[in-house]
């Protein structure tokens, strides 16, 4: 299938870059007339994966980079992250229960739960020395 449109943003692995990736995603979704409430959820899922890659896969090293693509296809939007950090397959991650988070007073663990609930499909692969994470959202 020929993509209708793909846009790319490259960011350094710093938490300060999250604002930029959210703005970029939000602008692209608005340009493609994705309704506000839906767009907000997609921006959130992108932010969560990106924060995870920056903090856990790349230890907030600003010299490491993440290439982020948004591809608009008929009936689906694909968000792709490429990085060279420590590989991590979200599908294999078992989110802790809410009870566990409360009793252990943990702050982390909710992000990937959100991503799984917002996205229709998550793919992870490794090509050469790159990790590739794809988030796929279907729309009518």
């Amino acid at each position: 299938m020929t993509p209708l449109m793909t846009k790319r943003l490259t960011i350094g692995c710093s938490k300060d870059e999250l604002v930029r990736i959210r703005q970029f995603t939000s602008d692209m979704l608005e340009e493609h007339s994705v309704p506000d409430l839906q767009a907000h959820k997609l921006v959130l899922a992108v932010d969560e994966v990106c924060a995870n890659l920056i903090i856990h896969a790349n230890d907030c090293n600003p010299n490491s980079h993440i290439d982020f693509d948004i591809e608009f296809r008929p009936r689906q939007i694909i968000f792709t992250f490429r990085d060279k950090g420590e590989g991590f397959d979200i599908n294999e991650y078992e989110s802790p229960s809410m009870e566990e988070l409360i009793s252990t007073r943990r702050q982390g663990g909710l992000g990937l739960m959100l991503v799984k609930r917002i996205m229709d499909k998550i793919e992870f692969s490794t090509e050469k020395n790159h990790n590739i994470c794809r988030l796929i959202k279907m729309y009518p």
């Binding site: 907000h40 809410m98 988070l101 409360i102 007073r105 943990r106 702050q107 909710l110 992000g111 959100l114």
Partner: peptide, 17 residues
């Protein structure tokens, strides 16, 4: 205007306390 899981986690992490 916006909150991600990091912010929600702050509320959750203090509930027990």
């Amino acid at each position: 205007d916006y909150i991600s899981s990091a912010g929600l986690g702050v509320f959750i992490s203090h509930l027990d306390e």
